[in-house]
Design a protein around this nucleic acid. Sequence first.
DNA 1: ACCTGAACACCGTTCAAGT
DNA 2: ACCTGAACACCGTTCAAGT
Lengths: 186, 186
Amino acid sequence: MADTRQRLIAAAAALLDQGGPAAVTLRDVGRAAGVSHNAPYRHFADKRSLLAAVAAAELARQGVNLGQADGSSDDVRAMMQGYVRWAQRYPERFHLTFGRWEGEDAGLGEAATAARTGFNRAVASAQARGELPAGDPERLASMILALAHGAADLGLGGHLSGPGKGGAGAEALVADLFDYLRAAAR
Amino acid sequence: MADTRQRLIAAAAALLDQGGPAAVTLRDVGRAAGVSHNAPYRHFADKRSLLAAVAAAELARQGVNLGQADGSSDDVRAMMQGYVRWAQRYPERFHLTFGRWEGEDAGLGEAATAARTGFNRAVASAQARGELPAGDPERLASMILALAHGAADLGLGGHLSGPGKGGAGAEALVADLFDYLRAAAR
DNA sequence: ACCTGAACACCGTTCAAGT
DNA sequence: ACCTGAACACCGTTCAAGT
């Protein structure tokens, strides 16, 4: 049944969370899904393809968060802080999802553009309200996303002096950016 | 001789550039350095420790770039665009260097803080000139670095609509941020 | 102090069968 | 159409020796 495929993806995601991509062995995935160690090859071309399915599922789940907002700059900022919290809670999924994906893996590209569309619309809406600087909405959205992404990634790597050391955490850096953008919009 | 250690690091860096961390097999590293496949264990505790040495060397090399500037906002921006170009040219070293490093690996932490110090000073100097918004220099430096880092990482993953698709590349996003910051400083 | 060859456990992948 | 057990090549790491 196609149920096996879903169980394989769920098992892979759980192993990924626990120990990163190296811990996602096809033997453990099979064991957790109740099948043999090479049953995954009946559903996925290889290990990389299985991980791509995990990333696509995660991206679809995350895309929902980016689509629900009225479009004030507070909404846009809340989306980005939600993005940062997601990265902090599921660091391995975060790295996997935004890693390098050559070719078209399991509709990963479509899921990514779908997730971005809602966010771009929210940014455009905040611009129309005069709460964010004018200009190409997609370009401004890219810049905002880049900051949230970079802050989350540096934070996970311990490369931000950090909230513990008296420095600014990733969420605070996102808040700072929006303060600057609102100031520049005036 | 201690020369072997340097050859091992150089060989590991070359293999990393070609095929990522998975391509850095101790057998190939040894072969390229002219020693047996487990000679590396006389110089490094394990594979992870060897990669940490590669990251530390790269960080030291990159730190030089961040230390040479008069401190205008143009200098700070040029540093960040240099950072982005470095990531684009050596994507594997970029990901390795800013990945997760548990514990104190081969003085990696010291190299990182040294690299940051020069950059923080340049930011503070640009603030003193009134070219960047006032406030805690280290916090502003973190925000700027987060944007450059995120833009580079998203660009490498193909998650920026990109210069090819008509969208903004990582370097352009860095330029945009500085435009906003200069506007907010007035 | 530094290096080597053999060996071990583990992993991704393939193959010949099975239902 | 989906699954299994055996097998292969490869890799990180350890060990007993060698100089």
